[in-house]
Amino acid sequence: MANVAANAELAGQPTLGAPDAPRLISQRERALRTFTSNRTAVLGVVMILVIVLIAIAAPLLVPHDPLDQSVSNRLAPPDSEYLLGTDDKGRDILSRVIFGARIALMVGVFSVALGGALGTAIGVVAGYFGGKVESGLMRLTDVMLAFPDLITGLLVLAVLGPGLEKMILAIGLTIAPRFARIAYGPTLAIKGKEFVEAARSIGVKDGRLLRVHILPNVGGDLLVYASLWTASAIRLEASLSFIGLGVAPPTPTWGQMIREGTVHLALVPWYSLAPGLALLATVFAFNLVGDGLRDVLDPKARA
C-alpha cells in the first residue's frame, strides 16, 4: 500500500509545479506562518510530539515490563491490571503497544534519513552532471521505481535477512529511488537558470554550487516527501512484519502484534486492533504534517 502515496505524488508533480526561483528568507518566514496557521498540520506536529514523548518515556509509562512472560496467563481479556489484556505469551498488550512506538519511529526516521541522503545524492548528481552518469543512475532508479515498494522491500529483506538494522536498510534502499526522482527534476531546472550558469562562468566550483544553490532549492520538496515517506516507511515496516519478515523477538512491533493477533481476533480483539490503531495514528500524524508542508511550499494547491 505504502507506495501509492509516493507514486501519486510523483504523478502529481507536473500539476503541482516545481519551484521556479530561489526563495528568499522572508518567504521562509511567511511559509512558517502559513504552516502554523494550518491547524491540521499543527495537529500533526502535536501528534508526532506526543508519540515521540511516549516512545522516549515508554519505560516510565508502561504498567508492566513488555517482555515479562507468563504463559499460563495468556490471552487474558482486559481487566484492571492488564487494561488491554495479554498476548499469546501472557505479556501485557498495552505495554507492548507503547514500546512498539520506538521501533516504528526508529524505522520510520532512520530509513527515511538513509533513503533521503542516498536518493538525494543520486538525484542531484545525476541532474547536475548529466551525460552517462545521469542515464546510468536514472535508469537504475527507474528500474527500482517500477516495482511496488512492498515487493522491492520483500526481495531486499529476503536477501538481507531479518532484524532491525536490516529492516531500516531494506526500507531505506526501497525509498531512495523516490528521493532521487524528486531531487532530479528541480536540479535539472535550476541547473539551466542564468544565475547558475553565471556562477559557473565566474569559476564557482561544482561542490559549492550544489551546496549553496541547488540543495537549498531542492530541500523544500524533499522535506514534504520526507514527511510523507516517513509515514510510508512506518507502514511498510508494519506490512513486512505482518507478512512475517519483521524485527527480532522479543522486541514488540505493531505489525508483528497485528499478525499474531489476527488468529485470536474473536477471543481478544484488542490484540490486533490496539497496535493497528497506534499504527494508524502514527502514519496519520506524519501524513498531516506532510500535507501541511505541501500547502506551504506549493501556493497553487493552497489557492
Binding site: L67, Q69, V71, K89, G161, P162, G163, G244, L245, G246, A248, P249, P250
Partner: peptide, 21 residues
C-alpha cells in the same frame, strides 16, 4: 524459542533470535 529466551534470560544467558521463514 521466545519462551526459552525469557527462561534463559533469568540465568544470564542471552539468546539473540532471528526469525526466518
Amino acid at each position: 524459542y521466545e519462551v526459552l529466551q525469557a527462561e534463559l534470560a533469568e540465568i544470564g544467558i542471552t539468546l539473540n533470535l532471528t526469525v526466518v521463514d
